[in-house]
């Protein structure tokens, strides 16, 4: 079972990393004035938000090998599906928090002759964090719990191991009760305090004091 916790945490970390990258890329693409780029991002986000995560997981693990002969190990298929799916939600958060930075900040940066890349990197993106982190924290807590789905494609995570234990010892209450508590502890005592700390740090960066 401890092994399972490790796999759950690894799934969480890998899918979070992927989700962050996807969020940034597609969130910025959603703000593009180029119709093609905007269109690609919109289709991507609509597809991954509009269809079931469980079915996406099955597609990546079972259908892709048949269609285009790409076969992924269960562990990779698991976090890739999670990352792609949660990245679609994250992209909308990124778009929203970039749009929440006042237009005057763009103008001030342009008046200092900054290039669009410098403007984004040094002026706009750092100011998105206070807007971005609260909804992103929510998303990551969701993500942690969603990792349980990867057990269905035979990733030996916490939930998978719980089921194995249950089949061996027939102690549903104890086994699934323990699993429930472990997920709660991970979310409540590790993930949430970490994200809260990031929020305070980000707020301090823009000169606000919270919490």
């Amino acid at each position: 079972m401890f092994n399972g916790i490790g796999i759950t945490i690894a799934q969480m970390l890998c899918s979070t990393a992927l989700a962050i990258i996807i969020s940034l890329i597609f969130g910025l693409m959603r703000l593009s004035s180029n119709r093609l780029i905007l269109g690609i991002a919109t289709v991507y986000i609509e597809f991954f938000r509009g269809t079931s995560l469980l079915i996406q997981l099955y597609w990546i693990y079972y259908v892709l090998p048949l269609l285009i002969n790409i076969s992924l190990e269960a562990f990779y298929a698991g976090f890739i599906a999670l990352g792609l799916n949660f990245g679609a939600y994250g992209a909308e958060i990124v778009r929203g928090s970039i749009q929440a930075v006042p237009r005057q900040q763009w103008e001030a940066a342009k008046s200092l002759n900054m290039s669009p890349i410098l403007l984004m990197r040094r002026i706009i993106i750092p100011q998105t964090f206070p807007h971005l982190l609260p909804p992103f924290s929510n998303l990551l807590v969701e993500l942690l719990k969603a990792t349980a789905l990867v057990s269905l494609i035979s990733v030996t995570d916490l939930f998978f191991m719980s089921k194995v234990f249950n089949q061996t010892y027939w102690m549903s209450l104890q086994v699934f009760g323990t699993a429930l508590i472990i997920y709660y502890i991970l979310a409540r005592f590790f993930l949430t305090p970490f994200l809260r700390w990031l929020e305070i740090l980000a707020a301090r960066k823009v000169g606000k004091l919270i919490g």
């Binding site: 005057q104 900040q105 103008e107 001030a108 940066a109 008046s111 200092l112 002026i123 750092p126 100011q127 960066k205 823009v206 000169g207």
Partner: peptide
């Protein structure tokens, strides 16, 4: 060209 704005528009971070 340099510009100063009505609302200052300093970078808050």
């Amino acid at each position: 060209i340099g510009m100063v704005f009505q609302q200052f528009n300093l970078f808050p971070h």
